[in-house]
Design a protein around this nucleic acid. Structure first.
Lengths: 292, 292
DNA sequence: GATCTGTCTATTGTAGATAAAAGACAGAAG
DNA sequence: CTTCTGTCTTTTATCTACAATAGACAGATC
């Protein structure tokens, strides 16, 4: 099969949500904008909606005939893009499985295991190589460098340099910059989650990424912002994987974030640097604990 | 054609050089080590050497029959790997040609122009995207972000952070670390070139890369060292492209390097920082002059 | 017994093909 | 005259196939 129609299926599912709350659908270009896909895909969606009797479609008339039910949706397993599937498979293998540094990575074997073509695996590995966890031997295999203490230290060294600089830059954002509002909204969410931390501590991972990305963005430097991808992916899988004391660790990190946010709002360079350093120090320790 | 045999051709040419100064060739594994290729390729080379009457080959006996002549070598155009060809073509297009920021990049068109398959072009673009000059719109084209002043400023901001830290780390290398010897050899080469700068100033580009890479390596941080790739490629093509005042610029940079090297050898943090900052400042100005 | 060669197998690099998705353009509808 | 739809073309994402290259193993040679 040349290409999975995951874009179609995913957009179709999102379209069902739209359809749930309205009695008619907008024009094709407008739908395309809302769902972030081209008109070609929109028309495929409309065709299917008509086929399964959800709408009556004739030129500009797109009347909703009934509410969508669970069976109308495509299963979520079919809406993941191939690269997401490969990423998850690969990360599970190297983080969860016995992933000894120095291990060889075999494109063909990976592809067979995931049930996909080699090209996609290759492209994934090339993209992934910028994270510094694997390395290519030309005309030969890839080598896994491993999620080792050295990796964690090198990563956090750069992270600290970048985040300190970004945090300092944050203080100089103009008063009307949207980042301030976003910062307030993030702070509020922290307080909400902390108020019910036993049940909601799992929401921290996503919040953490949102907060630090906001800080890094203040650098206005594409290399600094791009580097945050590496941190995000490492922490993302790290959270999924290492759940010991998760509640406690997350609560502590959220407290630190609140201090850090207050420091940013004060615009006082010394306070910012201090709060930032404290938080980065404990983030580093958390990460180091989980390397072997 | 599934795969170009450029590895074979390139190793063959390098083997001819070996053959020029000896009357018999070593064993297959040893040759493989020397040339950095597998035994399969070595045997292909030996087969061809025999075919064109350069050696007599029978099991372990590989007697040289005559000296290789120019016609025995494969043309250099055939020894470049496909990714090198694509890289050069692409850089020429975006640096030399009218490369407006925001321009769309078309995989198919690029492939046709270079005379290669789309897969290779795609993989090149994925690898290249880490340099921050292009960006992918999923399911659609790539966008050229352009070699703009913003790019140069963002690049040099990170470079300065990394190089200052690496230079500071350099001072702490143990006395017997090989980097000190390499530093001396680089300094000597600077003096040689400076003594005949009118004729040899073009050798600076390569020397520059060698020197700064050595400094970055002292950080022992893979992210810092990898980042130097970006700097190297940008400066590499920049030197090829912007030749105004090249002699004068290179001479000045070499003088700065010598001061910088002396500072490193003194291990005095303040001197190092000062020399490093001065040099980085003029490097940034040079780069900025050539953006538009 | 260590290293080499002959032979065979497995993997990578690249081209070419094809379905999915994007996008262009003219005529239709407001 | 602006926005929409019908239709068509182009490009991307992915699979498969195959030559080049790497690498494994057993028997030969030192």
């Amino acid at each position: 099969m040349a290409k999975q129609n995951t874009v179609f299926k995913d957009a179709f599912n999102r379209c069902l949500v739209l359809l749930d709350t309205s009695s008619a659908l907008a024009s094709e270009p407008e739908l395309g904008n809302k769902l972030g896909v081209s008109r070609t895909t929109i028309r495929a969606i409309l065709t299917r909606l008509e086929e399964i009797g959800l709408i009556e479609w004739s030129k500009r008339r797109k009347v909703v005939l009934r509410k969508p039910v669970a069976a109308d949706y495509f299963p979520t397993a079919e809406t993941d893009s191939l690269s997401e599937i490969i990423e998850r498979s690969f990360m599970r293998r190297i983080l969860a499985g016995g992933a000894e540094p120095g291990m060889q990575i075999n494109e063909l074997e990976l592809a067979r295991e995931i049930g996909t073509g080699t090209t996609s695996v290759r492209e994934f590995l090339i993209r992934f190589s910028r994270f510094g966890l694997i390395e290519k031997r030309p005309n030969s295999h890839w080598v896994l460098k491993g999620f080792t203490p050295e990796f964690a230290l090198e990563l956090t060294e750069v992270r600290e340099m970048f985040e300190l600089r970004s945090a300092a830059a944050f203080a100089h954002l103009p008063d009307d910059h949207p980042a301030w509002a976003e910062l307030d909204s993030i702070a509020a969410l922290h307080r909400e989650i902390l108020a019910d931390v036993d049940n909601r501590y799992r929401e921290f991972s996503e919040l953490d990424e949102r907060f630090h990305l906001l800080v890094h963005r203040a650098s206005r430097n594409r290399f600094i912002i791009d580097f945050y991808d590496i941190i995000a992916i490492v922490f993302h899988y790290h959270y999924q994987w290492n759940k010991t004391n998760a509640r406690q660790r997350n609560a502590r990190a959220m407290e630190e974030h609140l201090v850090y946010i207050d420091a940013l709002k004060s615009r006082d360079p010394a306070r910012i640097e201090d709060a930032c350093r404290r938080h980065l120090k404990s983030a580093r320790e958390t990460l180091l604990q989980s390397t072997n």
